[in-house]
Amino acid sequence: MHTRPGAWKKHAIGYMFLAPWLLGLLGLTAVPMLSSLYLSFTDYEMFNRPQWVGWQNYTRMFSDPQFLDSVRVTVTYVTVSVPLQLLTALAVALLLNRGVRGLGVYRAVFYVPSLFGGSVAIGLLWQRLFGGDGVFNHILALFGIQGMNWVSSPQTALYTLVVLAAWQFGAPMVIFLAGLKQIPVELYEAATIDGAGVMARFFRITLPLLTPILFFNLVMQIIHAFQVFTPAYVVSNGTGGPLDATLFYSLYLYQAGFVNFRMGYASAMAWLLLAVVAVISGLLFATSRKWVYYNE
């Protein structure tokens, strides 16, 4: 009688299992996204009705000195901390690769900072480590170097956070290590027989075969670095100071939206960020065909 019993049932069951996620997608992602897109073209301060202002929020950004500071700070942070972190991760992973005794212990030691790094506790610790009477200066003094207050100096404050990011190289290192393990030993043996030295083996075998993982780490760390909030907030006591030196994009967006309740403006900032992250990811994916090695 029924030609295909349960044909519709199959779909129903699929959607039943997907229901919570679909609800979240709709209610917590899609609708909020569209709302914030709309708000980004309005003047909205939480207590008034949103007033349509066209592109004004977007054009205003580029004459807002604090916004420009936040862009400069975030771009500097991303371009310095991501390569620093990934290069450290790769270097240490290479040191740990193949037959190092105590690999598990080393890996654990290097990974622990990644576990703690985003916490308030570490932010507070960092503030003290690099403060005027902080331990860092005491250690410098042992070598006869006169320190300074690294956290409250506009020239160096951002770099204390770069150091904090580099300190967390453990997570990408773990991924590199797993990738290195997948490279067949026979490749190295064959290359050695052919007379390839250490450098040749690294640049001809290790690095090309590792590019997919390098690419993944690069994309993820860049996206992550653009969104950093907690360390900047905690180390600068929520101000982004001194002189906006640590006014990260997320921090300024938070201040604009949730301290000053300029929610239209903050929404515009959010969409600009989305556009920038999308363009950068897109560019990375587009260029990846040129430098990422795929086996298939």
């Binding site: 709302s35 914030s36 996206i223 653009f226 969104q227 967006l253 939206g257 959010a270 960020l273």
Partner: peptide, 18 residues
């Protein structure tokens, strides 16, 4: 779902808060 993995939380947080 894979695209939402890369979405900055900023684009949803304001309406969610409201």
């Amino acid at each position: 779902m894979m695209v939402t993995l890369m979405l900055p939380f900023h684009v949803t947080v304001i309406p969610q808060y409201i």
